[in-house]
Each structure stands twice: as structure tokens, then as C-alpha cells.
Design a protein around this nucleic acid. Structure first.
Lengths: 324, 324
DNA sequence: TTGTAGGCGTTATCAT
DNA sequence: ATGATAACGCCTACAA
């Protein structure tokens, strides 16, 4: 718990000099520098970040608000963000909003209190005003807070198109879409892209909404039972797809022979469980890194262009669809 | 960005008085209190936590070190920890060690710099000295750093026993154990409990080590191929179990008719995918809450008893074992 | 009951 | 090239 004063005393210099050497700023003689350095070593001195932050009004902390952590998609995103953050000598304060506005407001206050330097929002609420009042750089993932607040998202529209095209190409004519919550922009985009392709192929389809992470199994079963002639299913998450496959099995339907299934996300298990899932993969790695790096630019006062970035998705064909 | 001074000025009192009302400390007249309160309201004043922390030498931040976030077990634990932390008006700095000692050391330094109040470690490395030099309260989950550092763990020994007993009771005689990394204490305990029961039943068994989270599918297949007569498998994680079931399917073995399978953890998917997994459930909720609350006691200077707490596990019988 | 003033550990501006 | 010193925003003796 040595302070800068202790170091100064030990090295027989002033605190100003010590400050200069630890920050590599201003002129300082090689000799005295070494003196200071060895004093730092002996005392195992580490600068107090709180004092620093207080003075500089920036904390080297980035706040992240996630709606939950127990879905693979968010967990992986969080991991990538943490990694990128550390690489730039920033640190992460993680907040789980549970999609609750109250909680989110509370966190914003906390961010303010700690002079958080920037915020990454992966939440779904939309307290634009609150955010703007904070005057803290923000970037959102998978969400459009306002025209002025930068965002990064998968190209969900294209994801929907890819899935539809694949289904159509491999012979499906009776298609249903097991969507995520359709209040979400991401879900809406996927839907639009999906419909777009079906429409140009003169196909209609039914759609049902579910939770991404813990879809109600019985409701999925119902949706599938209601469409006995269905030969193709597009699911807005791999977990929904995994569930759907179970339901199809219950109905003695074979995948992909009778019904083809496409998921979304490409979670780890999608490539392990049998049949291995055909899915629209989101480039979480790129999204996470981009979010952090863009936020850092924002913090540094740089301007972002484009303000709203779309990351390519790609269709990974595995065992739940036929070759087309 | 109003400061305590601004509030003082607006309320025509001194900063000391303002400080007293925001901290509910010392004598302060009702009237002046109200004056201050309304000034606070008008200015939307929020105390600067950094300044506070600097003075008090405690930051209301808890640091968590996890080996990774993308396994369901850790993700859920993290979520529970975050929740408990917030409830006590603390906040979470999350650090992903990736089981790398260098990274972990770096984080410890960071914790020091931010005057972190306490640390929760869910990591596997064992830099006991480093930790003790920090003089920051610590609790570990699933790990025994030293006799003196409190810990909380599932009763893995009992988990192993429960699994073995179930397998034996439902008729298995040719059992294998697909373990996690056997360097881990948790894995060792499970192994011991498991062996204990098998031994009293005069059964021998083979065991193989895998990664909990991303076990090598081919190696699991090999282990299973090597034991064609196997009729019971205990897996140290649900993901391993899910993999094993795929491998058994590849070999035209029926679960549970030909081979019974028991997992560990009880992840969400275990209850969704078919066949629904029989598994040893860890009480993550209790573990997470206990960790936070115990750490808070430690921070408050209370003593912990017992220093090393074991949380009960329970066997959840579902569809991958027979009725016994 | 309230106000003054010093200090928490840093940084940065001025002198020297 | 180095050293005083005044902030940063808050808290708490101590005085009044």
C-alpha cells in the first residue's frame, strides 16, 4: 500500500518527479529516473487508480449491460468483450439488467458514480433519454437506441434471406418460422429477409414467437403439430432449433429427410449434438471486438463512420438440411 | 456532474452538512436536511464514488475471476453472483483468467489499484502467495487455495456416490467414468465418492479424462468403443454426457435400455434435449449467494465458520437411467 | 446543530 | 530537470 509519497521519500525526490516517471511524461534525468524506478520496485508501489481516476475524471472502466448471461450467445460476447477490454488496459463492470428498466436505471447511476468511461449495451430496453443525459460514450449491440448512438449488429436481414434461400433451394415448400420475440429489431430484420425470399418464390409461411434462450417446449410442439405438412423450419436461435428437432422426433419426423431445420447463432453445441445443426452463424468475435474498439474511439473523441455497422453472417450447412 | 459543493451552495449550507445528510450521519436539523435534499434533487446530484472510495479506501467493487464464461455452469454462477452483489450495493468487476497465471496476476494488480473490497475466485490456478500478499478478503468457489482461505464447493464426493449408487441400483455392472480434468479437486472428489460405492459393490471401472466444456468428441467415441460391454456411464459434466449419448447412438446403443448415462451440473439443456438427462444437480444458486454473502462478512471483518463449506447436491432422475 | 480545514493519492501548472 | 502546490470530490475531526 505504498503511495507516491513513500516512493518520493525513498528516492529523495519530489512526488512530481515520481509522477513523471510513472507516466513517462515531461523531462526527467536518466539517473533520477533509475533511482525512482528502484524505489518503486522495492516498495512494490502500484499507482492508485482511484486517485488517478478522480483527478482525470475517467476511470478506465467500461460498463456493460446485458439482459442475461446464461445464454451462450451473450456469454461468448461477454468473453470477447472482456478480452478486448483488457487488451486496451480497460476493465469491465458487468451489469445484468434482466431486461428490467428499473435495474437498468440503477446501473446508469452507478456508471455515473464511478466515472465509467464508456458503455456497451446489449440490452433491449430503450431509455434513450436516460442514456443521452449521461453524456457517456455508448455503443449498442443488436439494438438501435437512436440514430445518433452507434451500434453494431449482425446483418440479420441477410441472415433471414440466407436461411430462406437454403430452405427453398433444397426443396421446402411448406415452411414455418419459429421466431424470437418479435418486439426485437433483430427478429424483425430476420423476419423481413426471410419473407422477402419466400415471397419472390411465391411461398407463404406461418410464424410463431418464442424466447431465444428458454423457449417453451410445449408451445413449440404445438406449433409443429399445427403444421403436419411442414417440410422446413427456420429458427431464430439454435436452442429453439434443438427444441424443434426434439418435437419433430416425437412426431416420428426425420430430420432432414422429412423436415429440414435451420438455426441461428451457431452455438458450440450446434456442432456437437446429432444431427449437427445447419445454422446462420453470427460473427460474435468481430461484433465484440468492434464494439470495444469503436467505444474506445468514441472515448478518444474520434468520430465513427458508419455509425451503425452491420456484420456479415454466414450459413453453415451441416446435417439438418439436405444438399441443394 | 454536480458536486457536493454545488449542493452546499444551493442549499446555503456547508459541504459538511451535505455530507451528513447524504450519509445519514451526525446531527442535522430536519429543516436544513430538507433544504439539502431538495437541492440534491434539483441538481440531480449523485455522490462521486471515486472520491468516496479514495477517502474510505474501499470501492464497493467486488472482483471475480473466472476461468471462462462460456460454459453454462460459470455463466449461471456469474449471473447469480452479480445479482447478489447488486443487492448489497456492491458492483462487479469481471475478469476472465482463461486459466492463465499471467492474466490472473495482472488482474490481482488491477484489483489492488482499484481498492477492490473483495475477490471471488472460480479459477483453477493456485497462486496462494500472491493472493495473501494482497490482503484483500477472498473466497473461492470449487477450489481450495489454502486452509485459511474460505471456500464453497458442491459436495462432489457425495455427487460421485449418488451417481454410482444409482447406476448400481439400476443394474449396471460394467461402468465407466468420463471425468473432467483429474487435476481438479472437484473431479478428484467425485472420483473418490464414485469409486467408494463401486468398491463396496465389488465393481471395478475404467475412467477417462476430458474437458468439461468442450470435450473432444472423438476421444469420447474412442473411450466408448473400447468398452463395448459398458452398461453405465457417469459423466463429470452434462456436456460430456450429451456427447457420450451421441457416441452411443453412433454405435446403435439405446439409452437407457442398453447403456445408462448420468451427467453432472444440470444445465438448462439437460432437461430439454431428448432423452432428458439424469444428472447430479449442483445448487449454483446457493453457491453463488453464499459466496457473495460470505465475502461481505469477511469484508465486514466477521469470522467465517465453517471456513470451507460444502453444498449438497442431488440426483435428478430423468430419462437416461432406468427406474431402480 | 453547523462550519472550517486537512487529507485521501494523483496529476498538472507553475516556478525555480 | 526538478520541486511546490493547487486541484479532483469527498469525509471527518475539531471548533464554534
Amino acid at each position: 500500500m505504498a503511495t507516491i509519497k513513500d516512493v518520493a521519500k525513498k528516492a529523495h525526490v519530489s512526488v512530481a518527479t515520481v509522477s513523471r516517471v510513472i507516466n513517462n511524461k515531461g523531462y526527467v534525468n536518466e539517473e533520477t529516473k533509475n533511482l525512482v524506478l528502484s524505489a518503486i520496485n522495492e516498495l512494490e508501489y502500484v499507482p492508485n487508480e482511484l486517485a488517478r481516476s478522480l483527478f482525470k475524471k475517467q476511470s478506465k472502466i467500461i460498463g456493460v449491460i446485458v439482459p442475461h448471461m446464461t445464454s451462450y450467445y451473450f456469454a461468448e460476447l461477454l468473453e470477447i468483450i472482456e478480452n478486448a477490454t483488457i487488451e486496451h488496459d480497460y476493465h469491465l463492470m458487468v451489469c445484468n439488467s434482466k431486461d428490467d428498466k428499473e435495474r437498468e436505471s440503477k446501473y446508469l447511476k452507478v456508471f455515473h458514480q464511478y466515472s465509467i468511461d464508456g458503455i456497451i449495451i446489449i440490452s433491449n430496453t430503450s431509455r434513450v433519454v436516460d442514456y443521452q443525459n449521461l453524456h457517456i460514450p455508448i455503443i449498442t449491440i443488436d439494438h438501435w437506441l437512436s440514430d445518433m448512438i452507434p451500434s453494431v449488429t449482425s446483418n440479420n436481414y441477410n441472415g433471414g434471406k440466407l436461411a430462406a434461400q437454403k430452405l427453398v433451394d433444397s426443396g421446402c415448400r411448406n415452411i414455418i418460422h419459429l421466431r424470437g420475440p418479435s418486439v426485437l429489431l433483430t427478429v424483425q430484420s430476420r423476419s423481413k429477409g426471410f419473407e422477402q425470399i419466400l415471397k419472390t418464390n411465391n411461398l407463404v409461411h406461418k410464424k410463431y414467437d418464442f424466447d431465444f434462450k428458454t423457449p417453451n417446449h410445449k408451445d413449440i410442439q404445438k406449433a409443429i403439430d399445427l403444421n403436419p405438412d411442414c417440410d422446413g423450419i427456420f429458427c431464430d436461435s439454435d436452442v429453439i432449433a434443438l427444441n424443434a428437432i426434439q418435437c419433430l422426433r416425437n412426431n416420428q419426423k426425420r430430420v432432414p429427410e422429412d423436415v429440414q431445420v435451420i438455426g441461428f447463432d451457431d452455438i458450440e453445441l450446434a456442432n456437437i449434438l446429432s444431427p449437427r445443426l445447419t445454422t446462420v452463424a453470427q460473427d460474435k468475435n468481430l461484433i465484440g471486438k468492434y464494439a470495444v474498439e469503436t467505444l474506445l474511439k468514441l472515448i478518444a473523441g474520434e468520430t465513427i463512420d458508419p455509425l451503425h455497422n452491420q456484420i456479415d453472417v454466414r450459413l453453415i450447412e451441416r446435417e439438418t438440411t439436405k444438399k441443394s
